[in-house]
Structures are given as C-alpha cells and as structure tokens.
Write a protein that binds this DNA or RNA. Sequence first.
DNA 1: TTTTGTGCAAACTATTTGCAAACCG
DNA 2: CGGTTTGCAAATAGTTTGCACAAAA
Lengths: 126, 126
Amino acid sequence: MQSQKQYIYSVILHAPPHITAAQLLQLCRREKADLAMGTVYRNLSALCEEGKLRCIETPGIPAIYDTTLTPHEHIICRRCGSVRDVQLPFALDSLLTEAAGEELTDYSLTMGCICPSCRARAENEK
Amino acid sequence: MQSQKQYIYSVILHAPPHITAAQLLQLCRREKADLAMGTVYRNLSALCEEGKLRCIETPGIPAIYDTTLTPHEHIICRRCGSVRDVQLPFALDSLLTEAAGEELTDYSLTMGCICPSCRARAENEK
DNA sequence: TTTTGTGCAAACTATTTGCAAACCG
DNA sequence: CGGTTTGCAAATAGTTTGCACAAAA
C-alpha cells in the first residue's frame, strides 16, 4: 500500500495552492475515509522538513501549507480568509538582517487586507 | 476600589518592556493574589483597543504586550525567548502596501535569531 | 436598580503526543 | 522478526467565554 505521506503529498499538489491541514484532511477523506488528523499533521511536518512544502503560520488562524517554494510573502483577507501570494521587489531578509544587526534564523511576515470581492460585497450592503 | 484595569496598566508600565499575560499575572498576584487570568486578558485587550498597549502575536509563542507605541518591529531569540525592539530605517508598511497593490488592514512581522548570549553559551558547550 | 466588572471554571482551537495495533521489508 | 507508520484518543497551550455574584453608578 502507498504510504500516507506519498498520498497526502499527491493530494496537496493537486489542491488549491494554499490549504490548511483540516481542509486537506477533508479532501483526502473523499478517497481514504479513515485517514487521521494526526497522520496529516505528522506527514505535513515531515514534508516541510524535507523542503517539499512551506508552512505559513500566522497568529490567530490555522497554518497554511504552500507548495510554492520560491521566496514570496502572503496577504490574507481578514474577512473571507483567502490567501494571495505577494512578490516583494526587494530582498526583505537582507533588509531585516541589516536593520537587526545580527543574523536571523527566520522571519515571519503576513499582511492583512479586505480583498476586492469582500470590499465590493461590503459596498453593496451599504 | 481601584479598577483592575487601572491596576494592571500601572503594573505593566513598571514591568519589563515585553511581557506575556502569564508573566504579568504573576507580577500582579504579588499584590493581588486573587486576580484572575481571564481578567488580565480582558483588560489587556481593552487597553490595546484604547491604544495604550500594543499586542505582538507571533506563531507558536504566547502574545507579548508592549508599552512602546512608536512603530518598531521585534526580534526574538529562538533559544531563550528574549525580545528586542528593532527600528527599521524605512517605512515597511508603505513598501508592503505598494508591493501588495492594495490597502493593508495590518501586517505582522517577527524576526527570529539566536541572541548573543545564547550564542556565546553555545560556543562554550562545544 | 440597571449597568459594568470580576473570579472561576469550562470551552475552544489548533496542534502534538503516547500508545497499541498494523504494516513493511 | 524489528523498525516504521498509522489511527485513535487524550493531552497540551494559549486564549476566550458564560455565568453568577459583587461593585459601582
């Protein structure tokens, strides 16, 4: 039998580009009804450590797993929760390292917005 | 009797500049043994909404409350958890807004490092 | 007396972990 | 057989909330 890790990886590759562990579990369970939450988390962590996934942790909301490995940041709609990639036209980590005056082990950045469609909906409701 | 909110505010003003709700509770309980955790959280939230405090939420670690209101970012030692302010020599929010191409409601940034004293300690243990 | 604040305990959410059974080589 | 992976359930951590009572206005 195919390992759950491989299976989970194949599912996430064909899923929307930003997905939470719970959403992924739901997707997987369509085919494998007895897949356990713990297994999903364990394997997602493993895949992150292998460098096959990125995990975006943002305060207050569930972690989002991302299959895009090239450097980019994220903007999330505070109303509907949708996530969009943002390419910065400069090397943020160098700027931060310089400003901090010491080596960084990591940094975490998330931007918040009200996305265009939520904004439009809000307009309509006025 | 003085409201707990005023009391909590006065304690945090004289406490170390970055403090968690749990640490603050401990401090407060030296004088007021029956202060409740829920009360601390409720009043810290209220003080934040009044703009008297900033709350720095970072994935994986308890929120840190900060009495410094001028714009700055934070770097945290991944080994000992100590927090230090970092002044950026540029306006990050403008850069981010421009890169995102839309208005931001907020952004959250935290840098991680191994602080000098932890680094020194690690050297010694080699 | 109507509103507001408080202590307590329980609830909540996302994630992690211990363990025994299942699987794989 | 012996190490690894899984499902399950319980544990964890930080924070929030419901509620009955106390305080204040």
